[in-house]
Amino acid sequence: MTLRRPFNGIAKLRHLLQVLAFTLVVATLQYAFMPDKPYGPPVVYSVLIGSITWALIDLGREFVPSAAETGWPQGWHGFALVAAGIVLGYVAGTWLADTLCVHYFRFYPAGAALSGADQRTSILITAIAGLVGCYYFYAINKSAYLQDKMAEARRQANDARLKLLETQLEPHMLFNTLANLRVLIGTDPARAQHMLDRMIGYLRATLAASRSTLHPLADEFARLQDYLELMAVRMGPRLAYALELPEALQNVPVPPLLLQPLVENAIRHGLEPQVQGGHITVRASTHSGPRGPLLAIDVTDTGVGLPATLPAPGPGRSFGLAQVRERLATLHGSQGTLELIATSAGGTSARVVFPLEHPASTA
């Protein structure tokens, strides 16, 4: 695969500074082996030959289709570019250095010329330094490409993992709802019909939204409202709820179905065991963290409260909590947390916290 990369002036400037540093190292080593000669001429020759060679090769490859893996021309084009850059860089750099050393810096008298041994040494140093420099830039370009591909693969793996977790959550919620619907069909057909209509509306609303790994927090709250309305058909006046979402947080991206398991947990383990039912509040807020602002979402119920010992994760036990924790870990690592808190009124609050991410610009 070949491509033409967009010109990156900052990267080219960084390459030039690296080349200049490398040429100074070469000049210093050359002087260290020949301390009887002045230090100035090796610096002039090394800097001019090195910088011109770099310009011919690094700027020249911008005009030739390059390999996606390395950013360098493939096949004979790449070898020809390097060879031509080294030869022309040596010729042009030597001529310019001769002019400066004789007429400007006056290191040599007019008409002076390098000996045959010095010329051979200069050609050898130029060839070796040119090949080393080209391999260095080739290697760092390939390394950067491989790092980008690894990061892309990790993102794709995380997206696939999140979609798998979401597909596990959908049947879990659906089976629980169908079980409740089965009971209502025998005891209250009218409410069963109403509940079935709500479930159809909920599934229709969630189908399109669940095709992405992230959606706005406002959509997540809208899906929560659909679910709570569905549960209100079954529980009647025993279920009351409030959704509190500040306008500034409505477009914050969050994973779909992140909060629904927590609301389901609050109903199943908090409100349903109480004869009088209770109230659920879902509230979004922000606060500062050690690495930046954090988004906190609290699902608070006025139910029976936390048991003395939480059940261990397993089939039919703490499924929703385990899935929420796993999704947070996949997206945010140790910065994504889920905490269960016993409230002073006797209920339970499930708090989800993760880094606040601003929505991507659509301009």
Rank of each mutant, 00 (worst) to 15 (best):
Y45T: 09
S122V: 04
A218S: 14
V64K: 05
Q323C: 11
M195G: 06
L96R: 00
V19K: 03
T206C: 03
L295F: 10
E244F: 00
L81V: 05
D301K: 05
L328D: 03
E229Q: 14
A329N: 07
P38I: 06
N180I: 01
G75C: 04
L59Y: 08
T300V: 11
A117W: 09
P313Q: 08
G40M: 13
R204P: 01
A127D: 03
P246H: 12
L16R: 00
A192T: 06
M235L: 15
L13C: 13
G75P: 01
A208Q: 14
L181Q: 04
E326S: 08
H215C: 14
E272L: 15
L217A: 04
E357F: 03
A112C: 02
L262C: 06
N251T: 11
L169Y: 03
L48E: 01
A179R: 11
P313W: 03
L262I: 07
T94C: 05
P65I: 09
L56F: 14
Y136P: 00
G75F: 12
H194W: 04
A179L: 12
V26P: 06
Q250H: 08
L258K: 01
T362D: 10
S285F: 09
Q225C: 04
K149G: 05
K163T: 14
H15P: 02
G116M: 13
R155S: 14
I297L: 14
R106S: 08
T2W: 04
A218M: 05
A139C: 04
G336S: 10
A129Q: 03
W72A: 02
N265C: 10
A360S: 13
R211L: 14
I57M: 10
A113I: 02
R238E: 02
A129H: 08
D188F: 04
E272I: 13
M34A: 15
S288H: 08
V132P: 01
Q323G: 13
I128L: 11
L96Y: 03
Y39W: 15
Y138W: 15
G320S: 03
G270C: 08
C134Y: 15
H358D: 11
E247W: 00
G347L: 11
G40E: 01
A55Q: 01
T348L: 05
S349H: 01
W95K: 09
Q18H: 07
I57H: 01
